[in-house]
Design a protein around this nucleic acid. Structure first.
Lengths: 136, 136
DNA sequence: CAATCCGTAACTGATTGGGTTACATATCGT
DNA sequence: ACGATATGTAACCCAATCAGTTACGGATTG
């Protein structure tokens, strides 16, 4: 499956910022650590900023900082900030309406996927950026 | 995120087979319910067969059947049968080795992703095809 | 006002996934 | 034995997606 790596990069970014508290890091500096292009970093940081996890400061001496203590930022916060969709997807075309099974299955699948993802994010909620940094 | 829909289709297939116990269904019949091409169905059924969840019979009057009772087939069985990879992915390029954070983060991320997916599949293990069919 | 950095649009190349065609192989009924 | 039927794959096409990149406008600092 082609899964995007935004979540992994987001955790990387947040951990990096947590390691340099107070000191704003530029997207270029972060990109140097992640080994990618600054724009890729800024795209992800944009999502994290919209979720209120980081702040940015343009101009000379600017950069990015965390808005909260690393211990109060859960991995679920980062995950939902990206809103890069679900792990699961329904079939591209809806099932045959003449089939009794397929007809009612849609809603059931949707519910199951939702529950399953909730189980996953519940685990993510139990881990914070502080925990990650502590493991380094 | 671009997620493949094989898991959804697999559940659809297994539920359908569960609804017609003993009676073999052809990939064409199943495709008619899912609204897709028979080959797409056969590809997924191939994975399910390799995992021992279904059997196939070629030739006239052939088709597909479950090998077990629907109540003994968990959604995790279907999920792992597809082995369509993880929900999460590491960044395409490894982090900068000169960065102390990025350097040790790789392994931590891998562990976290593994734990998180385990939490997810644990929930999938608690649901069976029998449960799905019962909800129809 | 010059240097720096964010913010975002636009484009590219590679990868992937669903859909499709085609064909070899196996089985059943007559 | 033979024709009909269905599986099992390989091969290909097209659309969508993602990481990466270039470009440029706007904000801030000194």
């Amino acid at each position: 499956m082609q899964t995007n790596s935004q979540f992994a990069v987001a955790i990387h970014i947040l951990s990096l910022l947590a390691c340099y508290p107070g000191e704003p890091l530029t997207s270029e500096t972060i990109a140097g650590s992640v080994t990618t292009n600054p724009v890729v970093i800024r795209r992800i940081l944009g999502s994290l900023r919209r979720a209120g996890l980081v702040t940015s400061q343009p101009g000379n001496g600017g950069g990015w900082k965390l808005t909260k203590e690393p211990g109060t930022i859960s991995l679920r916060d980062a995950y939902t900030a990206l809103q890069s969709g679900s792990c699961f997807a329904l079939a591209p075309k809806p099932p045959n309406e003449k089939c009794l099974v397929g007809c009612s299955l849609q809603q059931i699948l949707q519910d199951v996927f939702e529950e399953t993802e909730a189980a996953m994010t519940a685990h993510l909620a139990s881990l914070t950026i502080g925990d990650i940094v502590a493991r380094l």
